[in-house]
Design a protein around this nucleic acid. Structure first.
Lengths: 235, 235
DNA sequence: GCCCGATGTTTCGACATCGATACATCGGCT
DNA sequence: AGCCGATGTATCGATGTCGAAACATCGGGC
């Protein structure tokens, strides 16, 4: 089972999606809406219509000139290029995030301040954002939650070098023991036992793996930011 | 302009989406497919059909019994509950990520190893994942890229307490100066000038803000993991 | 045995989406 | 002036989606 994501940028009730990005890129490459529609096996009338809808919400995206044989054609505006770049970054970030390994710590909310809370888990107290579930209010003290910890949010430190609580913005800090190291690719991963139902996983560069010199059995300090950790309600 | 996401979990070519989660939750609450369809203003026949499609890919989700007046009804299976929980976490994470502030450092790829690379920017060398664009291969040395740095990936340290390079898995480290502090809510933010075209932004808890005691003009060390940073091609 | 309301299955019709097509107009080039 | 291929606009028809409705069957409770 895999996770995937469709990203959208919205303005004025119009959603800019992957098919819109593809259309604009095709216009940029073909130099005309006509050529773009043809390249995408789409109706030119619909393509033009969609461009007009998008322009109503996002501003001028395609500068169009009538005339053929060198006289007609279309060009993307700077607004369109920025929109495409922002969409590409959003898509890349979300797709990358969706593909990450996640570990779940079950727990109970102990206290809440605004959208942040402290969750009591088997591994200890975890600070996290308290996130509303679908059709559910955000969790309150006493509520059972699941804390999701994505592997790219987890930073590892040599115990002697781990930052003191007053010296870092990473609020969650656990001491643990390495149980597995996977250094087969440029991006590797380490599993660390911290006392929860399953080890936490961190993704690391090979350089970090080498510099930290961690092996199964090594002691290590795990930190992750409260603002990058989410607790959702258990039904 | 806002970002939004549609998350999916996929198996066997079938995508489990928000509407499917809503359907299963409604079945759980109503205790029957019949009641769920009614609650959602959906066709019972289509709801049942969709449940069967999902079960073909994800396994048994709804245990159905014929008979009424206390004899019929439906119950979610443990598989369905796990699927709903995983989907809720995915949706929460992606929605949260989409809503974050991002800062962009333009640069040029200097070297690449596997999916990681070093990008030369105005702020200095940044290690990041090199991500393919739509219809584009991942960037190669010499290519122009945009490095996206999301605010929940940025950790701040008091300069005296920042972890040494051999003692942490966070590979990117910059010295900077605080330019703005926003502590109006439980989750605040700090902007830090590090020499790029715009300051980087970190989200922090109020507790971190207090403990780091940062004010505009303060020196601070910024770290973020290479594995949580993405560079995408510039067209 | 009957009632009630559940599941299971099938078909119908409304509506939205989307490609195709046609016609009109434009404008650079020859 | 005509050619060529672009944009602009309008309409048609095919297809897929989806709610409604109908009929059959089931099974707990009375």
């Amino acid at each position: 089972m895999d996770a995937s994501v469709d990203a959208q940028l919205r303005a004025d009730g119009v959603a800019f999606e992957a098919a819109d990005a593809a259309l604009l890129r095709a216009v940029g490459e073909a130099g005309s809406v006509s050529g773009a529609a043809s390249d995408l096996d789409r109706s030119r009338a619909r393509a033009l219509d969609r461009i007009e809808t998008l322009e109503g919400a996002f501003g001028p995206l395609v500068e169009r000139r009538r005339g053929g044989a060198g006289g007609g054609g279309s060009e993307l505006t700077p607004t369109a290029r920025e929109l495409l770049a922002e969409f590409a970054r959003l898509q890349a970030t979300l797709a990358g995030t969706a593909g990450l390994e996640e570990r779940v710590l079950p727990g109970t909310v102990r206290e809440r301040e605004g959208e942040l809370g402290v969750v009591e888990t088997d591994a200890g107290a975890v600070r996290a954002r308290l996130v509303a579930g679908p059709d559910r209010d955000p969790p309150e003290p006493g509520d059972d939650v699941q804390v999701g910890i994505r592997s790219d949010a987890v930073t590892l430190h040599a115990p002697a070098d781990s930052p003191p609580a007053d010296g870092t913005s990473a609020r969650n800090r656990f001491e643990g023991t390495v149980v597995d190291v996977d250094r087969r690719t440029a991006v590797g991963s380490i599993s660390v036992e911290v006392g929860g139902p399953e080890p936490l996983v961190a993704v690391l560069t090979r350089e970090s793996l080498d510099r930290l010199a961690l092996e199964p059995g090594s002691a290590v300090v795990v930190t992750f930011k409260a603002t990058a950790t989410r607790a959702i309600p258990v039904e």
